[in-house]
Design a protein around this nucleic acid. Structure first.
Lengths: 337, 337
DNA sequence: CATAGCTATTGGATCGTTCCAATTCTAGCG
DNA sequence: CGCTAGAATTGGAACGATCCAATAGCTATG
């Protein structure tokens, strides 16, 4: 087991100096084409692999971006993560993806590890919970940090934030359900007290308030399982409810499955609108109406804003809201009860 | 904008030498507790952050494991990735997750980038397609590399491989459908010619052959969309088919949605079994029977085998097959046609 | 009180690259 | 043929940690 070859070995083999090899590695157009050929051949022959740690040590700029996601299992975030990675890859940046699993402690570890590995910037969708220390530490590094899709609960203004205009989306969904004839519209999902829950709920509340209608809200973890359970609760405790705006598509899909299980399939008298418009929404049965968020576009946008910050030092505006639009499908368009 | 403090700055502040600071960083029990206190205080005061690039350069051992997944959007793989990351985190290793998106070229780039960043080992679920170069390069590094869940098509024996016993699983599923009274069992999904398709199909084929029954197979991308489309094809071209073993749960869910759309909901005469038992299988309606693969357990196992290799130099057996088990649910237990 | 045997600390060399200033090469021109 | 401008190449310092061998400090012991 011998050690990995270095540029010195390459240089010796190619009969040039290490500096020349370094220039070749960096794609400098200052080396003569034939010299470049020789060097490249030498590299291939002895199986040279670039040692990025050494390079970073000297040059301090790393083509590495960290991405910390609170729940990578959620397809919405998975889609964002993969799209962002691809957008950054196109610009020559590598992305390390990590999942904090809604655990502020794990999140702190992950962020720390990324800083140590010398990421040039960080994109984070924060876990719920107390994490001021993590963010203070992050702020001290002076690294470009973008909050996306979610904002931490305290110190909201520490880093620029970009997300969708959830309030407008839920208002649109609620108005749509009213137009379709619904009169008792519940809100289902979302952990109480969270900023994002407030946002996604606020549009619904404002519209119902303006109409003087009753407001039933069931809060809980935003999972399929909670949606199923919520279906039973609605049927048992709030039989008058004839429609629901859901915190996200997972809850909506669970809700629909729950109604189906109870023999009251959605589409016949009960209307549902979800949030996020994940791929599955168009492929469920009945197809799920959803507030679409063009997450792939958002990811590309995020990449562009991040690059502008990193490369041109152009700090993005502190808060950005991307418009959303309702995609009506069968789950909210069925015949009235 | 001043530069990041180094251990020299910490040393100066704490009134000790850089070597002592280094020992503190490594948690050596050779430093006096009060000295440690002093040093730690100094670090906190000047906001020191560890520079892992520099450390790696000298020590060559990096607590970093690379994970390259062919389709991170597939919940099955997402679950595996997050579980593996957590298992490795518990042992002090950081994991970089990347998505090759079934693109051998992107995969080559990602693998290259990971090697450059000095990962201590690599876990890969290869993309379909030609990638000998990538794997040869990988083999030359001498790094521990584990193939999981999928095996590359050529040079199958280059790296140890671990997966589930898919053939046994599909045989069990097929026998179960026969027991339930099905007589025309189709196989749906899976790209033709792939090793994994052959595996998941072989059990089905053997059982049907033994019974002398007809074998209808629809191949295609293993997505929800293909499942929906397959439903239409089955209804139109193979009306006699009364059950299906699906390549994976996504296809099965799409198939169920497609039948529902056509007014022939699964559970009434038509039976479906999926593969992977993703979380959603238990939360769809009707609940989906599926061949369960305990992916989280598999991930923990993978972590253990990888650590044994990295730390103790114990190369795992070349091929490992984890048993699977059928979880029967409503989608295959409904009343006969 | 000298000394052996610890433990705790230290300075210098080192890892593999990039950066910089200096040097060598090449071609063109009078 | 000598000179020069520009291109191509080069050697040495630097990055920030770890490693190692050497040293200083401290007790216990004869």
């Amino acid at each position: 087991m011998k050690r990995r070859p270095t540029i010195m070995d390459v240089a010796a083999r190619a009969g040039v100096s290490k500096s020349t090899v370094s220039l070749v590695l960096q794609g400098s157009k200052q080396v003569r084409p034939e010299t470049r050929k020789t060097v490249e051949a030498a590299m291939a022959e002895i199986g040279y692999v670039y040692n990025r740690a050494a390079a970073n040590l000297r040059s301090a700029s790393v083509g590495l971006v960290g991405l910390v996601i609170n729940d990578l299992r959620n397809p919405f975030f998975t889609e964002f993560a993969t799209s962002l990675q691809m957008a950054l890859a196109a610009e020559g940046y590598a992305t390390v993806i990590a999942n904090s699993d809604e655990d502020p402690e794990l999140q702190a570890k992950l962020v720390g590890s990324m800083i140590e590995h010398g990421v040039a910037a960080l994109v984070i969708s924060p876990a719920y919970g107390e994490a001021s220390d993590t963010f203070d530490q992050l702020a001290r590094t002076g690294l470009p940090v973008l909050q996306v899709l979610r904002r931490m609960d305290e110190r909201t203004d520490l880093f620029p934030f970009a997300s969708f205009d959830y309030a407008a989306g839920s208002a649109e969904a609620t108005r749509h359900l009213l137009d379709q004839g619904a009169r008792h519209i519940a809100f289902v999902g979302g952990l109480p007290g969270r900023a994002i829950t407030r946002e996604r709920k606020s549009g619904w509340r404002e519209v119902l308030k303006a109409e003087g209608l009753d407001q039933v809200a069931l809060h809980g973890k935003s999972t399929r399982a909670f949606g199923m359970q919520a279906a039973d609760t609605l049927l048992a405790d709030h039989p008058e409810v004839d429609a629901a705006v859901c915190f996200n598509d997972l809850v909506a899909l669970g809700l629909m499955a729950g109604f189906a299980r109870a023999g009251r399939p959605v589409g016949q008298g009960f209307r549902v609108v979800g949030f996020d418009d994940i791929e599955e929404a168009a492929q469920s049965w009945p197809q799920l109406s959803s507030v679409s968020c063009d997450i792939a576009g958002f990811a590309r946008d995020t990449a562009a804003r991040l690059l502008a910050w990193m490369v041109e030092g152009q700090r993005p505006e502190p808060e950005l809201r991307i418009p959303v639009r309702l995609v009506p499908r069968a789950s909210s368009l069925g015949p009235a009860a």
